[in-house]
């Protein structure tokens, strides 16, 4: 039922460039199949490889041995920066007459209002909270994309027509040519042994 299509000579619009192998992709139909394949690739000892799926497959991190990201720690740092920024902003602008000459000259303005002390921390809490959330959320989103190496306009995998279905209904195992264990014939044969729908060579 699975047709192993090996298309190393896929039509490229500009065939003038010398082709460098990026790696092999193996196509699977179900999350279960790609998970079993991922376990095998990991057991084989490959390091520069990946699984690409239309949605996060539950348990795949374990099957691939993906290390837990430090992103939450970074986000915590971002949130704390927000708290400190909000505290300093409010105390400086409303509680002190401090003059800061750089980068632009600014001076605080000690507001005496509604009988509250100059440094009325309880009244400053809402803004502290909001800026904590704001900074943490910005860190979460930008941190995540940057750590993922995104945004990027192009990627070798986008050269494969078959790979377009990765955002639809197909699951792929990708083994890169950079991997120390990568051998064109052997890796291809290994991927074919995982019982995929197809195996394809992808060029840089």
């Amino acid at each position: 039922m699975s047709t192993v299509a090996h298309t190393t000579t896929s039509a490229t619009p500009t065939g003038s460039k010398s082709k460098v192998l990026y790696g092999y992709i193996a196509e699977f139909e179900t999350p279960g199949a790609v998970m079993a394949a991922a376990e095998r690739v990991k057991a084989e000892g490959y390091e520069r490889w990946d699984v690409c799926t239309p949605f996060p497959v539950h348990g795949m991190d374990k099957a691939m041995g993906v290390k837990r990201t430090i992103l939450p720690v970074v986000i915590f740092g971002g949130g704390m920066t927000g708290t400190i920024a909000a505290t300093l902003l409010q105390i400086f602008t409303n509680s002190t007459g401090l003059h800061i000459p750089i980068p632009i000259p600014i001076t605080g303005y000690p507001f005496l209002i509604s009988g509250k002390p100059l440094m009325s921390i309880p009244a400053f809490i809402p803004v502290m909270f909001e800026l904590t959330v704001l900074f943490a959320a910005l860190t979460a989103v930008f941190g995540m994309f940057i750590m993922n190496g995104l945004p990027r306009l192009s990627h070798p995998l986008f050269g494969s027509d078959r790979f377009r279905r990765v955002t639809n209904d197909r699951f792929f195992v990708v083994i890169e040519a950079r991997d120390a264990r990568f051998l064109p014939g052997k890796t291809e044969a290994f991927l074919k042994s995982l019982n995929p729908l197809s195996v394809e060579a992808v060029e840089e």
Binding site: F129, E130, N148, H155
Partner: peptide
Amino acid sequence: LGWRGSNRHWHRYERAYLILAALSTPLVLS
């Protein structure tokens, strides 16, 4: 943004999404 469904990306993506949800919950109440 060049998203290609990499599981290594999904891993961080899901973390970030969960934390965003955890941040948005007190935010919306506030």
